[in-house]
Structures are given as C-alpha cells and as structure tokens.
Design a protein around this nucleic acid. Structure first.
Length: 815
RNA sequence: GCCGCGGUGGUGGAAUUGGUAGACACGCUGGUUUUAGGAACCAGUAUCGCAAGAUGUGAAGGUUCGAGUCCUUUCCGCGGCACCA
C-alpha cells in the first residue's frame, strides 16, 4: 500500500515512540498478569487461538482480538480480575507439507511462524497475560492432551473400528465428516472417497442428547446453536419391525412417520446392509451383486451429484407389513444410507417425495394415507390432513395418528417409540506425522493404553515425512519407535502409528490457560472452579460444528468424570465477521487484495488501526476494508492529540480546574452512558462515534476541566491504550491507568434544560418546538398548535386526538 | 428443497427497540490558509423541485395516532445442511 507520509504543520502524534514506550512498560511491570485471587470477581475473556501459518496475519485476523482486548480492559476498569490469554494451535497439515517439500522439521517451521505471529499480535498492544502462553505442540501440553485421551479411552469412548472413511488420496489422509464439504476436502477441495480402514473413533454419539440439550442455556448466536442442532439432527419417530418370512428374521426400520404405515408399499435397504446377501433370491443374485459393487465405487461426490435419478434393484424377497399382514417387496438402493437409522426404510411413496420418485421409476404401488387438500397438485403429500386408507387411524390428524399407532405397535410388540440422531461418531485418527501420538500399544489384536506415568509419548525423529500412501502414517516406518521391547529385546507390542487430528489440542486449551505451568495435573481443581466457565469467547463462525462441538463434547465428558465444575465451557460466544478486501471480495493472496497489518501499524499506528477496525461496523458483520476510512480514524487520533498536547509535548494549557459547562457535563455523561451500554452489548462501532462527537465538542472549548479529561481518558483506554497511557501520564496522573475505576454517569446531568419536540399532524412531521424541560402536557399542546406551519394544517379540521410522547414528539390527529 | 441471517444516501454504517430516518465517518462541492501539492480549519451534501412543498429504509399489502422496526405475501443477497427415512 503506497501511502506517502506528509509532514503536517501541527505536531503529529509519534505513534512509533509512544507505542513502544507503553508496550515495554506493560511487559516490564506485568500489568496484565492474571492472579489467582479467588476473592475477586473474575472475568475470563478468550480468543480462538490461531494456527500460526507461514503467511502471517492480515488485517482481518486481529479483528476479534481487538474486540476481546477492549472488553478485557473495560472489565479491568470495572473491577474484575481478568483472565485474557493467548496461545498457538500449532499441530497441522501445512507445516507437515512444508516438511515433505523441504525436509525442515515441522517444529522448526512452527517455531518461526509462532515468533512472527507473536510479534504481529504484540505490536497491536493487546493486554494478554503472556505468562500463560501455551503451544499445543509443546511436550508439556501434549502430555495432557494424551492424558485426556486416556480418560476417554477408559470410559469406553475411544474405540477402533474398520469403518468406511473419507479417504482423500491427494492429502493422503482420512478426514472427519465435518471436514468434508460437498464430497471434497475442506482443505484444498480435493476429491474424497469412501474406503474401509482401521480407525480410532470417539463415541460422540453417546453425548448427542447432552450436547443438544446443553445448547439451550448458552448465550450464543442463534445461527450457531441452530447449526449445531441441525448437525446433531435429532428426529423423533418409531422403530417398526417387519417380518422376513424367507429367512425367519425381522427387519427393523426407523421412521418419523409411523402414522403412514398403511401406505408402506415396499421396503428399501442400503446396498451395504448385512442382510442383503441372505435375502437375495437366486434369480436376482447377479443383478444385486452388480449393484452393490457399483455403489461401493461411488465417491461421495457421485452420490450427491446423482441425487436426481433413483436407481435400485429388487432383492427377490418380501417382508410383511405388521399393520395389515400384506406382503411387500424389498429393494436395495443407494438412496438409503447404511449409517443412518437401521440402514433400511419402509417406503411410503404417498407421503415421501424420494419414495414417490423411486416408486414411479420402478412402477411400485402408491397409497395415500393422508388426505391432501382438494387443490393439491403435487406428488407426495407431506402436509397436514386427516388419515385415510388406514383402518383404525382414519380421520385422525398426523400427531394423533402417530401416538395411536405407536401405542398399538408397542402393545403388540411390533415396534416402539424411538429417537435418532444424524450425528456420527468422530473419526479421530490421522495418517500424519505432525500430531499428538495416540498413547496406545497393540499386541495380538488387543490394545493397551499407556500408563499415565509414561506420558507424554513424544514424536520420534523421522527422515521422511511423506506418508506411505497406503493410509499409514510416516511413523509406521520408524521401527525402533513402533516396536516396544522389554529389557531383553522381546517385542511386547507395537505402538499406534496414527496421530490425533488437529482438533485435539484445541478441545481443551481454554482449561490449560487456567493453570499452564502445572506439571502434576492437567489443571488445579480450585483454579478451574474459580475461572470457569469462559465468560466471553470470540472467534470465527467457521468453527460452528467443528471445534465448538468437539470441545463441548470433551468438556461434557470431563464434567461427567468430575474433572471440571461446569457442564458447558463457553457461556457466551460471539462470531466476528470477515474483513473483506477494498474490492469487497474475500482477502486472498491470489486476488492481491490483502492488507498487511505490519505496514498499517507502521504508517498509522496500532491505536488508529484498532479504532478503525472497531469503527468499520458491527463486529459480527462482513465489511470491506477502506484505506480512506482508516485515514479518517488516524485523523481523529491526531486531532485528539493536538487538542490535548502542545507542540513541545506538554499537556495543553487548556486543561484547567475550571468547572465544565453544563453542556460539556451533559455530553460527558451522555457519552459515559452510551459507551458503557454499547460495550456491554459488544457494539464497538458506536462507541467510537461517541468519542468523535465528544472530541468535536471539546475542540471548541477554551478550557477543559481536568476531571472531565480523566474520565475521557479512561473511556478511550480500552480502544486506544497507548495514547490513553501517554495522556494519563502527561496530565500528571500517577496511579496505574489500567485499574482506574470506570466513570459513572448521572442521569440528571444528561438532561438538558430545554427539549426539542417534533410536531406531527397525523403522524407526519410538520414542525418543531423547543420548550422548557418541565413544561406540562397541556401547555405543550398549546405551544404545538400555535407552532410555525401547524396552524395552517389545523384550518377547517377537527382535532380527534392529541398524543404526547414524553421528551420526543407531539402528534395531533385531525380529520 | 430445508434451516438461519440480512436488504437504509455515492460508500461504511446510526436510529434510545413502535416515536423527528440518515448519528459518526468516508467521498464529493464551495470557502479560508498555503509558492504549489498535501495537511488543517469553516460551510454544504437522501431524492425531486428555483421555491413552497412532496417523496423516501428491496417490492406489494396490512395492523397503528404513528412502522426501517410488528404481521402477511413476494423478490434479491449471504451462510449452513442436503436422498438423514
């Protein structure tokens, strides 16, 4: 960004010198250290810690950090003991891919990137307690990540399974469901295929109910709660058992519409269903085998892209519909998926569009069991209506029919009420080097967890970081690490060579900040009880169903095991929006619209950048960067400086002990009120406007009262701490600014002596009157009626009603 | 298709939650100052109109004394999910 710097005639605020001065001061005096003083009210304000990439920060990254820093500083002024930490989510694929290319150990890359990120973050003057900095790749941290894994393992929540996984040949790794988007990898957009592989899984499905119900009491954006609810995907319905006469077994299906059972005219099983081979008839054997093979070759992308046309094959077997004893044919089709419900459905084409499409394709019978309205022209009907063709359910609405059929099924032992979740177990292993080793030893098909005393299990040095390509991690090549031997050299077992996914470290880092140096325990119980939960958590919405769901899962487990005192980790969540490039599109290297914070801070200073990012608009909205907008904020910063400070660097002679005018006092108290309320609501942009309005006012003053100035400095300190500290010092204050009490406002002082009231005729503004604040209503109406332009509007009209909205307006309703 | 969020000047956005729409800033126009450019300061800036005045928060209806705000229908944009039975 070529920004020519011109020397102005007024003394410019020397941001470089002053920012360095106070940043050094804060570090040397450990001003922002959080002390474990349990008597003080606490406030835990947390940022989603970054993955330190090689590219460094662009101006969008620190947006949330600026907001949390403002809140942290605000809460300190409000008397809270504030915990505000920062750390690094440092395991991950980019460092490993760089290692494959260059041979540089990922720990070296990671260290360099962290150093750069730390430098960039520090230049913005954030009030982090750097004594609590953590790094997920640090052996002292990995130890406790592995320790938590062992707790999950011991509780039976970690298991190995040969499951069809999302295999990405390009990344040479398997991915979690949450990491696959539209059949492609979330990172890089490479195709993903379904392959069976041995994998570690975490039983997050055991916590589906708990995770769903826990959302209710959280102060989170509705959109994120809704996203998680959808992802967990609770469905209420029934399991229904269908008799399979040919093999004398039962086939259970899950349905949300048991009321439509009389309309079930055929059944469909997933091609992978275990009963397929036993049910298939001799005549259909070849066709079925072919279909099953074709289905297994399809990638996720194929399956979604082909979702328009239904395919399938008749199994040559029948099932008995339990409500009427009718024989119905069983088909297989890939529109039924094995991993949801029981992998088989009862098809009710009359009430389900997918079943309708399939029935039309293969000429299967359709029976409506809910009467559609007369003008209904669609195909399957899923609206409300009376039951038809359904024997004892006829005439009932859907809800009544459901409960009646469920109790009928339960009484006869043919089915029962059931709840299903979409959520699947969490695929927890990765075929990568740069992750936490899973602390487990294999021996003859059995697995043994490491003893806690053997933790941390550290990564061995390797020569090649390239994965084997067969789905095995680079660790599998390190024989001396993999083979666990006793003193005499006998092999006792083989180490697990898969590592944990990047999410592992971020699942509990907020707990480690509470007690980062503890080498005996993951964290101290008393400290955890004091600091938790996180009072405010700010980060990007892209983590809605990944990090935020996984972390909640671990936390729920830790709660059940008695390791944490709160059921939920993050009480209030806020998502910062994206900062777009000047052109309105997403900032990216390829578009060439990336704004670098190093240059911005160098040219305009940290305070200007902080102020501008807050001024741009609401924190949660996406908004484009504007260099002229930034210049506007920089202009404001300099203007404020020049009002307060002389060219020779002393506090202005305007600052005196003369009492403020009524107007100045009114504006100060109004500002205190609005800034306080807006900060409580995380509305930072309007706080900045308030500062501008007040500054525009004091610019016109001949003298500025010293106490007014003091209050103003405290108000701006969260936003522009460097200048605030300097002004605080220049104005002769000696106490630590950080802990000054937040000013309070006096409602009486905010009121002016007179008020301006709009005068409306039939709700339209026609005039304005100014009256004394104590004027009684009757007098106000009289004044209003005689006001400029109003008498004209009242000519030849009948006044029906007179409305006075206190302090705002008068409305005269006429006819 | 389903779920969630949004649509206000030339631009980013305000609006005490039903009460004077456009705060604050950017940009633009004119002025002061300056050798000039820049900076700083002053004034103006929703639209139409010389004016009086009229119109105006994606569109159309409705509730109300009064609607950017509430209700209905509809269009557009963004995010998420997607054969989940």
């Amino acid at each position: 960004m070529p920004s020519p710097i011109f020397i102005s005639e007024t003394m410019a605020y020397d941001h470089k010198k002053i920012e360095k001065k106070w940043q050094d001061y804060w570090v040397e005096n450990k001003v922002f250290r959080a002390v474990d003083n349990f008597d003080l009210p606490k406030y835990y304000v947390l940022d989603m810690f970054p993955y330190p990439s090689g590219a460094g920060l662009h101006v969008g990254h620190p947006l949330g950090y600026i907001a949390t820093d403002i809140i942290a500083r605000y809460k300190r002024h409000k008397g809270f003991n504030v915990l505000h930490p920062m750390g690094w989510d440092a395991f991950g694929l980019p460092a490993e891919q760089y290692a494959i290319k260059t041979g540089t150990h990922p720990s070296v890359t990671t260290k360099n990137n962290i150093d750069n990120f730390r430098r960039q973050i520090k230049m913005l003057g954030f009030s982090y307690d750097w004594d609590r900095e953590i790094n997920t790749t640090d052996a002292k941290y990995v130890k406790w990540t592995q320790w938590i894994f062992l707790q999950l393992y011991k509780k039976g929540l970690a298991y190995e399974s040969e499951v069809p996984v999302n295999w990405c040949p390009e990344l040479k790794a398997v991915l979690a469901n949450e990491e696959v988007v539209d059949g492609k990898s979330e990172i890089g957009g490479h195709p993903v295929f379904r392959l069976p592989m041995r994998q570690w899984m975490l039983r997050i499905t055991d916590y589906a109910k708990s995770l769903l119900e826990g959302l209710d009491d959280l102060d989170w954006p509705d959109s994120i709660k809704e996203l998680q609810r959808n992802w967990i995907g609770r469905s209420e319905g029934a399991n229904v058992h269908f008799e399979l006469p040919s093999i004398n077994e039962k086939l259970t299906v899950f349905t949300t519409r048991p009321d439509t059972l009389f309309g079930a005219t055929y059944m469909v099983m997933a091609p992978e269903h275990p009963l397929v081979n036993r049910l298939v008839s001799a005549e259909q054997k070849i066709a079925v085998k072919q279909y099953v093979e074709d289905a297994s070759k399809k990638s996720d992308l194929d399956r979604t892209e082909l979702n328009k046309e239904k395919s399938g094959v008749y199994l040559g077997a029948k099932a008995i519909n339990p409500v009427n004893g009718k024989e119905i044919p069983i088909w297989i089709s890939d529109y039924v998926i094995m991993s949801y419900g029981t992998g088989a459905i009862m098809a009710v084409p009359g009430q389900d569009q997918r079943d309708w499409d399939f029935a039309k394709e293969f000429d299967l019978p359709i029976i409506r069991t809910v009467e559609p309205p007369e003008d209904f022209e669609g195909e399957a009907y899923f609206g409300e209506g009376p039951a038809i063709n359904s024997d004892f359910l006829n005439g009932l609405n859907i809800a009544d029919a459901k409960s009646k059929i469920i109790s009928w099924l339960e009484k006869k032992g043919l089915g029962e009420k059931a709840t299903q979740f979409k959520l699947r177990d969490w695929l927890f292993s990765r075929q990568r080097y740069w992750g936490e080793p899973i602390p487990v030893i294999h021996n003859n098909g059995a697995t043994t967890p490491l003893d806690e005393s053997e933790l941390p299990l550290e990564l061995p040095e390797v020569e090649k970081y390239e994965p084997a390509g067969t789905g095995e991690s680079p660790l599998s090549n390190i024989t001396e690490w993999v083979e666990v031997k006793d003193e005499t050299g006998n092999i006792l077992g083989l180490r697990e060579t898969n590592t944990m996914p990047q999410w592992a470290g971020s699942c509990w880092y907020y707990l480690r900040y509470i007690d980062p140096g503890n080498s005996d325990k993951s964290w101290d119980g008393a400290k955890e009880k004091y600091w938790m939960p996180v009072d405010l958590y700010v980060g990007g919405a892209e983590h809605a169903v990944l990090h935020l769901l996984y972390a909640r899962f671990w936390h729920h487990v830790l709660y059940d095991l008695g390791h944490v005192s709160t059921k939920e980790p993050f009480q209030k969540l806020f998502n910062q929006g994206m900062i777009l490039g000047q052109d309105g599109s997403k900032m990216s290297k390829s578009r060439g619209n990336v704004v670098n914070p190093d240059e911005t801070v160098d040219t305009f200073g940290a305070d200007s950048m902080r102020l501008y990012e807050m001024f741009m608009g609401p924190l949660d909205k996406a908004k484009p960067w504007s260099t002229t907008g930034l210049q506007g904020c920089s202009r404001f910063v300099n203007k404020l400086w020049n009002i307060m400070v002389t060219d020779s660097g002393n506090i202005s002679v305007k600052i005196t002990n003369d009492p403020p005018t009524k107007e100045t006092a009114r504006m100060l108290h109004s500002m205190i009120k609005r800034v306080s309320v807006n900060l409580d609501n995380l509305q930072f942009n309007t706080c900045v406007s308030e500062f501008m309005i007040f500054t525009n006012h004091i610019q016109t003053l001949i003298t500025i009262n010293n106490d007014v100035l003091k209050s103003f400095i405290i108000l701006i300190n969260p936003f522009m701490p460097h200048m605030a500290e300097e002004l605080w010092q220049l104005s002769g204050q000696e106490n630590e600014l950080t802990f000054q009490k937040w000013p309070t406002f006096d409602e009486l002082l905010i009121k002016a002596d007179t008020m301006k009231l709009a005068v409306q005729i039939n709700g339209k503004r026609r005039s304005e009157i100014e009256v004394d604040i104590n004027t009684v209503e009757k007098e106000i109406f009289e004044t209003a009626k005689s006001a400029d332009k109003i008498s004209n509007h009242l000519k030849n009209k009948i006044i029906l009603k007179e409305i006075y909205v206190k302090g705002r307006l008068v409305n005269i309703v006429v006819k």
